[in-house]
């Protein structure tokens, strides 16, 4: 059963293109070709979360759903490229409707300390920078999210909280960046200080 897609799977996850200048990178997404976008070696690297495999690699679950709703399924998985604090790109895949926070957590938490409050809008640890196009295309952040974002270190124009970014089919291939902020910690001295 597994051998079904092995040849194709070898190029998954897609390698990021050189130079990350353009924000939404078009890459040959295989997610719509073979469902689900997974293979055993990516499992061992921790990139594809266990629950996905449990849910979707099982033949009794996979076969009927593909034949029934293949068009819809095409878009059910999206790949997101997360540029980690060290600048290394990480490809991870998530289901449409899932939050970015979930995707990162399911990938065995490659981003340290991500989602401390577990998506309850009570911290800023899942802060990410989105590509401008994506930021503009998404629904506006709610007041509660903005309240938290205002506390985020390195707040930028396209900052969002990962727990509020809900995956959409068009986000396939999107690159999001985790802010690396250790450098500007010192500039923060006055922000949270209590004034008498």
């Amino acid at each position: 059963m597994i051998s079904l897609g092995q040849a194709t799977f070898q190029s998954w996850p897609p390698k990021p293109e050189a130079g990350c200048a353009s924000s939404i990178v078009k890459h040959p997404s295989l997610a719509h070709l073979i469902y689900p976008p997974t293979r055993l070696s990516s499992f061992s690297s921790g990139l594809v979360p266990l629950p996905h495999i449990l849910l979707n690699l099982t033949p009794w679950k996979r076969m009927p759903s593909i034949s029934l709703k293949s068009r819809e399924l095409k878009m059910r998985w999206v790949n997101i490229c997360l540029l980690n604090r060290d600048g290394k790109p990480l490809w991870m895949s998530g289901r449409v409707g899932e939050t970015l926070l979930n995707v990162v957590m399911n990938a065995n938490g490659p981003v340290e300390g991500y989602g401390a409050c577990e998506g309850t809008l009570a911290c800023t640890t899942c802060h990410v920078y989105l590509p401008t196009e994506a930021y503009e295309r998404m629904c506006q952040p709610t007041e509660d999210e903005l309240d938290m974002l205002d506390l985020a270190v390195g707040l930028a124009e396209t900052s969002r909280l990962g727990c509020q970014v809900v995956l959409k089919p068009w986000m396939d291939g999107m690159r999001v960046q985790v802010p690396k902020h250790t450098a500007d910690l010192r500039g923060l001295a006055d922000d949270g200080k209590m004034e008498g």
Binding site: G113, T124, T125, T182, L185, L188, A189, D191, G192, K193
Partner: peptide, 20 residues
């Protein structure tokens, strides 16, 4: 290390810096 200020994310980044 840096004085009593900042939210939990600040402390997190600061601790990672020390860890490094």
């Amino acid at each position: 290390k840096r004085g009593p200020q900042g939210v939990i994310a600040t402390t997190m980044n600061d601790s990672f810096e020390t860890g490094e």
